[in-house]
Design a protein around this nucleic acid. Sequence first.
DNA 1: GCTCCAATATGAATGGTGTTCACATAGCTT
DNA 2: AAGCTATGTGAACACCATTCATATTGGAGC
Lengths: 202, 202
Amino acid sequence: MQKKARSYHHGDLKTAMIDAALQLVREKGPRGFTLNEASRTAGVSVSAPYNHFKDKAALLIEIVLLGNRTLETELRAAADIVAPPTEKLLAVYLAYVSFADRHPDLFAVMFQSGINKTHYPEIQASSAKAFGVAAVLALQIESSPTSAWQLALAIWTMAHGFATLSVEGAIAGVGFPEAKGSAEALARKLLYAGRSESEART
Amino acid sequence: MQKKARSYHHGDLKTAMIDAALQLVREKGPRGFTLNEASRTAGVSVSAPYNHFKDKAALLIEIVLLGNRTLETELRAAADIVAPPTEKLLAVYLAYVSFADRHPDLFAVMFQSGINKTHYPEIQASSAKAFGVAAVLALQIESSPTSAWQLALAIWTMAHGFATLSVEGAIAGVGFPEAKGSAEALARKLLYAGRSESEART
DNA sequence: GCTCCAATATGAATGGTGTTCACATAGCTT
DNA sequence: AAGCTATGTGAACACCATTCATATTGGAGC
């Protein structure tokens, strides 16, 4: 793990910049990240990164894509347990919330760095892939595509809302004791709803 | 509505800066906002605002508080319809989603400007007040405080998640047709869950 | 093994930003 | 009318993103 004594050429500046960026975000929040400081951390001049990223935004986008890939991997792992689809979907929900908890740096860049995702179709595609994990499970629970879509979206929005508000301290700030444990109860309540509705209609 | 021909003293720079900030956020997104440009918009030197705001962050915080107050007002209005509590809570949910839609500038500053709310208890307090609107309704639906808390939190996180993802284009990007109409279906599904569970237990 | 090119790094320069500070102006109280 | 205080100005500083001319070097092809 010893650093190679580099001269002039860095060797792998691209990933070094991404690592430095994530470290800075961890230390100072998504707003405190600075290209210049990341360059300094990587031990390189401020203009060097422009050989690897068109922009500051381009670096952030790279991180968002990395985050979406990681998220999808973790959601997929959660969905691969041996259990009925309802429990799998619950696991996916919990994995989403847990992702925000365990990768606050990635999550912050993904959702608080202020990049306008509408302008970057690649980001939309990669986050849609992650959403697909939930959608597939929902289709195994709900009969009609419409209600499956609704169930997947409900799980997704609840997970994302909980994760976001939790990261911001909004949930802790509301003063109820066991915010942590209630994440699961939330999803369970919703999943029971999905069942009771579809079964009632059958 | 004619502007007074001002000289030297502005008269109401504080609200003028807030207005200018919101206008810039509307035009260029939460990241495009700049103290200098807002000062220019308000027709004042760049150092003048420092008589009213300690910081750039202080101006943003002021806007977040304004946003929370507006949100609370609108949620309260939604809860004041004549209807059973379940329908009221549904209305509150829809009002939250609608708030993000109708005040994208406020919503962006509240949740995308990158201020660390954990450091500002006033913000937590004001958003907790807005949450209270949902909590009160949930208490009229669920018998035990615990499940009422869970219901309120479920509605809240789903509303926030839907609003956030919708603003970012993530929901549109997933490719399902009527994303707009499904917001209501989501909440309905959840509210039926709350009912079926509590009634089953009674 | 040498040559040369493409990839990658440097450093200086530019225009913009947040913030501070000494100083200027004017509204209000007395 | 006088003067205090709130509010404004302009210049200054350090930092930031980005660009450009220039320097270095790893490696492909000979």
